[in-house]
Computed example of a mutant assay.
Amino acid sequence: MKPFKSTLKATAAAILVAALGCKPKGGDAENQATESVGEPAMSAAPAPDAHNSQNSLDWNGTYKGVVPCADCEGIETVITLTRDGEFQRRMTYLGREETGRTDAGTFTWDETGSKVTLTPEAGEPQSYQVGENVLFHLDRDGNRITGDLADQYILVKNRADPGLENKKWILVELMGQEITAGEGRRTASLIFDSETGRFSGNNSCNVINGGYELREGLRITFGKMASTLMACPDMETADRFNEVLETVDNYTIADGVLSLNKARMAPLARFRLEE
């Protein structure tokens, strides 16, 4: 019989050998756990929010407002921004004898897609923050104007009506009289451009154009009109057409027919959509 101590030593050695034989290749579990903690798994960074004024808002169009003026009653400002990166601006100095000025040029967006800078062909650039249907006039450092006059540095976008605008309307009735194209009379028509806030067309003799404004309740106002000066055999229709545009204050559209009205009187003019 072997001594007890020798047997105990042999048994311990066998257990140690068995334990070493169970170690995973490449290092023990403790080392692997340490390596795992020290090198965390890579996760995809969250995508930045791609939504901004430039790509999320219907920003092109015409904006109007009256901003403060140091030596007049205010500057009536009208700015049109187009999709092709161009602008037109008209500034009228209220309470002054001078009529104001107009300019045009290009505009660029900042890196955030929230501000535009207008660069006129002559003069200094001006920046605006673009909001939903509004432009905020910014100071020289590109910041929003604060204080008691902050609300006066806001230009509001013209109201739009997809049912009326960007379509060609053909005149079919004027002051209750049916209108058809014929000898000495061209086809009278109107087109309302939502981007520029201007109308164009023909009064049955001359080409006409001018500004218009839509307001709540299907109200419409035609601005000062420009016209070519051709003489036609039937000037009566052309003159009445011009008179109607100066008179009407609201409109309705039903079954593809546009009616221009004065208050609740019978329609002064009716149009159909061009086929």
Rank of each mutant, 00 (worst) to 15 (best):
R272E: 08
A12G: 13
D141E: 15
G176R: 04
N250R: 14
D141R: 08
G256Y: 02
A19P: 01
A160R: 12
E124M: 12
A269D: 09
G182F: 04
I253E: 06
E165N: 10
N158H: 10
A47R: 04
N206D: 11
P233Q: 03
C22N: 11
T7N: 15
A231Q: 11
S194G: 05
E73I: 04
Y63P: 03
K64S: 13
C205S: 05
R89A: 14
I15G: 10
S200C: 02
A181I: 07
L155A: 10
H51Q: 13
W109L: 06
T196P: 05
T119Y: 06
Y153F: 15
A12I: 15
A231G: 08
R159H: 11
P267I: 12
G100L: 04
M265N: 15
L171N: 00
V67F: 08
N261E: 14
G217F: 04
D49P: 07
T252M: 08
S53C: 11
L81D: 03
E275D: 12
G223C: 03
N242H: 07
N242Y: 06
A14V: 12
K224F: 12
F107M: 10
L218Q: 11
M175W: 04
E165R: 04
T252V: 07
L118A: 03
R186G: 08
E183A: 15
V257W: 03
I220N: 00
S56I: 10
L190K: 01
A33M: 14
M175H: 07
R186V: 00
E35K: 11
I191M: 12
N203K: 04
G21N: 08
R144M: 15
S189A: 02
T187L: 05
K157V: 05
R272W: 03
Q54R: 13
V156M: 09
G74C: 09
